[in-house]
Design a binder for these strands. Structure first.
Lengths: 295, 295
DNA sequence: TCAACCCATACGTTTTCGGTATGCCAATGG
DNA sequence: CCATTGGCATACCGAAAACGTATGGGTTGA
């Protein structure tokens, strides 16, 4: 059963004539006649009644016609779909992001994506650092938005920007009076920390910063997300050192101040499985870069 | 876009290996490799990721796979359906019958048809003689069950049996006392008649019978169906001359008596358009003959 | 009766397909 | 470290299928 034969068959059925169909198919009439007869031989029954005024479908032909045109449509639709997926204009993209980035990035990123890849099903999920890694590896998310990234041989990391580390302090604290806070002023003050580096690599940037300036801050609490850290800072439990984008969406009553003498920043990255590299990821990267540039 | 290529594609996608798929397709591996590459060239994008351990679908390949296997299924289903229709084991059969035949034939005919052609959609409609002819010609019914038939160049008529003409009389009439009624006894008595011959050829058989025996019966009423005639006979409006099968389903209070010296009968026929002759009609004919034989 | 129309058949040419032989690459194992 | 193995790709050849041209036969309508 050849798709070309079916195409010929449908053309003849619609034209109700070999000659007309041959013209539409840009071929001569005799080979078309032969192909139709071969199809009939394959089916084992006549599909047309040959009259003196053309060809007319038999009941068997009508039964075939319905399926054949559907099959043709499916085949060309399949080709089109494959092309669209390959071009990155169709498909599904499941993104795991971290909460801090949500307010700063998503309002820019999502419209950008819808414009660049209109046929793509988008699926965003806020996930913790360890969950992002696990879901990326088991392929239940295609892309992870991270700070600073996922270390794994199967995972590719692309840096799309960086966020300076800033101090989050209650607005009534004396530190909030300063336009920027010298590192020395942090010594001995309680710190609200994220999970240790092996669980969340973001905290290693903070640890490195403190170590370099020989500042010791006792851990006053560990939280999963920057958002939770904000709550504890607001409650006066301690200070937090967070990426600047945490400003957006932070509760009232918290001040963010740059750290004087410290230009440390933390990378914003897009991570994906190396073996799932697709044009769609390219598209995503471009959109994400644009979104970060305006943060 | 060739169906063979799609078949190969699906096989490779399922086997996740050219070699395995080639074995299942009973062909050598190199030509299969060539066909897959040609398909990829046609689509314009790679459908597989070639690894050291076999072939893995890309996203584009997955998009194609779903449609391709559907298209394959549709094509082979279409061929199967066409074969079934040609063999008369599938299709639709719309039958227009006359009311008198319903009680005698349908209880035999329908089960017989369901047994002989299980995949066929049956559609029965009780239609008057003129409607049967019109619906047959405009193809809204496939078959008409008639007594005695439809005269038309496009219509083919097959006689499947005959019904003797009998007299229908009120059971309290003196005629009902006789085991058979001499024709002469009908002279001058009122007759409940069907529409004239140009509208319903059944009545011409009755007219011929009377003419041959030089019997004159005044028309006491004209009705569309034998069933209606029975009502008028019961009401004492007159007598009717009807096919013997009218006995079944006739109301109580009517006696049916053979006509002595008259062996006239009326043909039971199956009628269909010549250009719609199909194996299904053959099947129908066989079933109808069986059903009539047992009437 | 002739012309026009439409489908079928015949035959030669070209395209495409499948098989065999072989090459390349990576992973594996001694 | 080299050899072997497994898997896909390439090259070439013979076979099959499809297409085009030429032509035949039947029916319709002027």
């Amino acid at each position: 059963m050849d798709l070309r034969r079916l195409r010929y068959f449908v053309a003849v059925a619609e034209a109700r004539s070999l000659g007309k169909a041959a013209e539409r198919l840009r071929m001569a009439q005799p080979p078309l006649s032969v192909q139709i007869r071969k199809l009939e031989a394959e089916i084992g029954a006549p599909l047309f009644r040959r009259g003196t005024r053309g060809m007319d479908l038999t009941e068997a032909g009508q039964a075939l016609l319905a399926r054949a045109s559907e099959a043709l449509a499916l085949a060309s639709d399949g080709a089109e779909a494959a092309r669209a997926v390959a071009a990155g204009t169709r498909g599904r993209l499941s993104v795991g992001y971290m909460f801090v980035l949500a307010n700063a990035m998503l309002p820019r990123l999502i419209p950008e994506l819808r414009r660049s890849a209109p046929g793509v099903d988008l699926d965003f999920a806020e996930l913790s650092a360890s969950t992002r890694e696990a879901r990326l590896l088991d392929r239940s998310v295609t892309i992870a938005l991270c700070m600073p990234g996922i270390h794994h041989p199967e995972v590719q990391v692309a840096r799309i920007g960086a966020q300076p580390l800033v101090l989050a302090t209650p607005i009534r604290s004396p530190l909030a009076r300063l336009s920027s806070v010298p590192m020395a002023r942090l010594h001995g003050r309680p710190l609200i920390a994220l999970p240790p580096p092996e669980q969340d690599p973001a905290s290693s940037a903070v640890a490195a910063l403190l170590r370099r300036h020989q500042i010791v801050m006792p851990i006053a609490g560990r939280v999963e997300t920057v958002h939770s850290a904000m709550s504890l800072v607001l409650a006066g439990e301690g200070l937090a050192i967070v990426p600047a984008c945490a400003k957006l969406g932070a509760p009232q009553g918290i001040a963010f101040r740059p750290l004087r003498d410290a230009t440390d920043s933390i990378d914003v990255t897009v991570c994906w499985r190396r073996d799932a590299h697709s044009p769609l990821i390219r598209t995503f990267l471009k959109c994400a870069e644009k979104a970060v540039a305006r943060m």
